[in-house]
């Protein structure tokens, strides 16, 4: 089957039921998208399908169709996306394992809500678990990214 991933259409041979997560990681070699729970509980596997965040661990690859897949690798080649710059500025990461998912959710949030309130952040990001507890700085970084990308943010 064909998969449009980060702007390139790739041919991949995968069983239709196989979760998109494992197709991305094990068959296509994009390891920035992480496995954390396998049941849409933790958000570490978040990717975008046509700009909407989805949990790739519970997405059968056969349901993707022609929708465009975007992973953390497709955000920017060098960490220059405003959300990534905000993450660096706020010194967010600790172990870093959940951050691909946190960033992908934040990118989707800001694309649809350029000036999120704290309540909006609580709603958007409570599906992404961080065991290191970087939430305080994630919140700072989301506000900062809003300012960097849209001149908004509250």
């Amino acid at each position: 089957m064909k998969l449009d991933i980060n702007g390139t259409v790739r041919e991949v041979e995968a069983p239709p039921e196989m979760p998109l997560l494992w197709v991305i990681r094990d068959l296509l070699g994009f390891t920035g998208t992480k496995f954390g729970c396998g049941m849409a509980q933790c958000g570490a596997c978040t990717v975008h399908l046509d700009g909407q965040p989805v949990r790739s661990c519970v997405t059968p690859v056969s349901t993707v169709g022609t929708r465009k897949v975007r992973t953390i690798e497709g955000l920017s080649p060098d960490g220059s996306h405003p959300v990534q710059r905000a993450w660096a500025e706020a010194d967010v990461v600790q172990c870093g394992y959940c951050q691909s998912g946190q960033i992908m959710t934040t990118v989707a949030l800001l694309e649809q809500n350029p000036s999120p309130s704290d309540t909006d952040i609580d709603a958007a990001l409570s599906g992404n678990i961080c065991r290191c507890g970087t939430y305080v700085r994630i919140r700072e970084a989301v506000h900062l990214a809003a300012r960097l990308s849209h001149g908004g943010g509250k």
Binding site: A40, T46, Q52, P53, V54, R55, V58, T105, T106, A108, L109, Q112, N113, P116, D120, A123, A124, L125, S126, G127
Partner: peptide, 8 residues
């Protein structure tokens, strides 16, 4: 936004 039902 960011956590639509269809996210999961």
């Amino acid at each position: 936004v960011g956590e639509r039902c269809t996210t999961c």
